[in-house]
Design a binder for these strands. Structure first.
Lengths: 192, 192
DNA sequence: GTCTATACAATGATAGAC
DNA sequence: GTCTATCATTGTATAGAC
């Protein structure tokens, strides 16, 4: 892995987001992205990203699955499933600092405007839930309880994320996710 | 809508599934599908299906979102959110009769073997949950409770569906979904 | 008015050179 | 690691056939 690979990757991701905002996702070709990233070609683009969509999701994003899995594994032995999930959401939300909010908002707007991107987003979301459920099962949480806790945590995270990225309040994502998770937990008893 | 349209559509869907099983999804071209469906060309294929993936999901499938939305709207006034969801799952599961089990199993195997198809499946699943949540909100169920009930119902349905399509027991899907939903409800109190 | 053929653009794979 | 070049396939647009 050469010294400049990360920079090329970053330039490609930035050029892509710019062009998607200016022209729309579909109207932008991979060649245009590569060109704007510094006279590159689509060959180079596809060396860094497996497909055109992934440039948006891999952008600032580490392996979110790893983050939640590690946090759940590191939760104290006596922690309940939802306490382990809460630790996972704390770790994940910590990635999205205030300085990334503007970027996240723009990214989200692009994704919401294109059905192909919504599809990829749905898969990422399912993968996040699956990572949480797997980590919980490794703590000997029964199958259904693990899946359900993971669904709850995923719902809490994205509900909070949408508010965080969409509004002008500056509340930290960590606080939003915690409050949302608490609200969801309270809601559990009202479902009948 | 011409008299023969449904038959062309059905032949295309059947040819597609056959070829995907024989050769794999990626190794099969749209032209091959059209050819096997009776000397057609890809133009005709794309008249019936918006893209190559959709031929698998639109196949036997009506609008599942409509089914669950109607069932939830038709639930009695006093029904709790989870009772309304239970009615939705009954209606949806009724579509999958025993004679469709073999077909569903083959379909599922093809989908599990390809990441593009998994992506589409994730979107369909999210759309189903969203349809349930929307229908619940129209019954004045609060936002978070509606989303959560829908997540629970979706989890119940797919957990049951996977068992139904994957095993040799002949239990009806309706019974499997009901039992799974009950188990999930019982699990709620164990999450901490 | 439904269906089909031809032409075309863009994604993504592959092979070879620097 | 990047570039050129070529290729197959998906998916669209347009115009025509039954």
């Amino acid at each position: 892995m050469g010294r400049w690979e990360p920079d090329t990757r970053r330039r490609l991701a930035q050029a892509a987001l710019e062009l998607f905002i200016e022209q729309g996702y579909e109207a932008t070709t991979v060649n245009q992205i590569a060109e704007r990233a510094g006279g590159l070609t689509k060959t180079t683009f596809f060396r860094h990203f497996p497909d055109k969509r992934e440039v948006l999701f891999a952008a600032g994003e580490q392996a979110h699955g790893r983050i939640v899995a590690d946090a759940i594994a590191a939760a104290p032995d006596g922690a309940t499933p939802l306490q382990a999930v809460a630790a996972a959401l704390d770790a994940l939300a910590a990635v999205f600092t205030e300085e990334r909010r503007e970027f996240s908002a723009r990214l989200r707007a692009v994704i919401l405007g294109n059905s192909e991107l919504l599809e990829r987003a749905a898969l990422k979301r399912a993968a996040l839930a699956e990572a949480m459920a797997d980590a919980l099962r490794k703590r000997d949480v029964p199958d259904l309880a693990a899946s359900l806790s993971a669904d709850l945590g995923t719902r809490a995270f994205y509900t909070a994320y949408d508010q965080w990225a969409d509004t002008d309040n500056h509340e930290a994502l960590v606080d939003l996710t915690r409050r949302t998770l608490d609200e969801l937990r309270a809601t559990l008893t009202t479902l009948g």
